[in-house]
Amino acid sequence: MSALQEIVDVTPVEATPKKYIALGGYASVAVLVLLIAAPLFAKNFIIFQMTMWLIYAIAVLALNILTGGSGQFSLGQSAFYAVGAYTSAILMEHFNVNYALTLPIAGVICFAFGYVFGQPALRLSGVYLALATFALATAMPQLLKLGYFEHWTGGVQGLVVTKPDAPFGLPMSQDMWLYYFTLVISIMIYVFSVNLLKSRSGRAMMAIRDNEIAASAMGVDVALYKTLAFGISAGITGVAGGLGAIAVQFVAPDSYTIQLAIALFLGMVVGGVGWLPGSLAGSAFIVFVPNIAESVSKGLSGAVFGAILIVIIFVLPHGARQIAYLSQHWINKLIHK
């Protein structure tokens, strides 16, 4: 009886894809070519926005691994993002570490942080886990403001980060160099994530997502894989945070509030839970739609944003994934005719 009582309120994340988590070969190449070519035709500010788009896509992807992969829900991603950003900023400004080298360090620190946080989170699920992660997200800006760390974090003022130049005298602007740098890292993380979810560990996580009891009966170490998912998700988010700090050239506690976590969550839903390429679509939503809403109406920008969001979830309850499936379906029909 007591064993049964342990299993409470397991809210399954429904409608997550069972088989397809990545794009096919041709589609991947097409997207990649677009991503490489696009900045050649854009102004510096647009390139900066595209860089932020890629960075948020990495963070959305990380949440997707956690929620779409292992079925755990998190509103605390902004905390991991903040830790990553501060790690990079502090290493660059106080220790003069090369910006590229700060990213793996940020990733490792955030992995450890996520793994440790995943331990108590093991006992919680559903809304209870949402509240715990939410607490983390609200606490983080306050902790960063604390006087004890002010020497390192700069307190409320934050830290200014120098923007890196293109190396080897390459003839491109700082923004463009940063875009390609981010693109390379995004591709590395994407390939890693797809392979992770296709591997033995990924299958174990998805088994836990679909049915925890069945998974543990099959010999999956539930505790290990759940905390591992938290760690990996936090680690990737940390790398995104580090990149974000370098791109924005500034870190301050109030950039990493719960609103960032909510935005990342919306990005995941709009992109399609559990479908990794959807992270790009979801991230485009959180970077560009607020601007569109602002340009439609200044006073009612929140209402316009909400209305757009509602239209999207009405038309596409499963996010961008639905478009991908539909188009794939039509292409197959055309070919086989």
Binding site: T11, V13, E14, A15, T67, F73, I262, F265, L266, M268, V269, V270, V273, G299, L300, S301, G302, A303, V304, F305, G306, A307, L309, I310, I313, F314, P317, H318
Partner: peptide, 30 residues
């Protein structure tokens, strides 16, 4: 709003709540 979404995944509902939040807050502000 929510009856048409009855069969949508839970996380979609949460996104709907956030949309409602943004709309009400903005309309009240205006």
């Amino acid at each position: 709003l929510f009856k048409p979404l009855a069969n949508a995944p839970i996380l979609t509902h949460v996104a709907g709540f956030i949309a409602l939040f943004a709309i009400i807050n903005s309309v009240a502000g205006l």
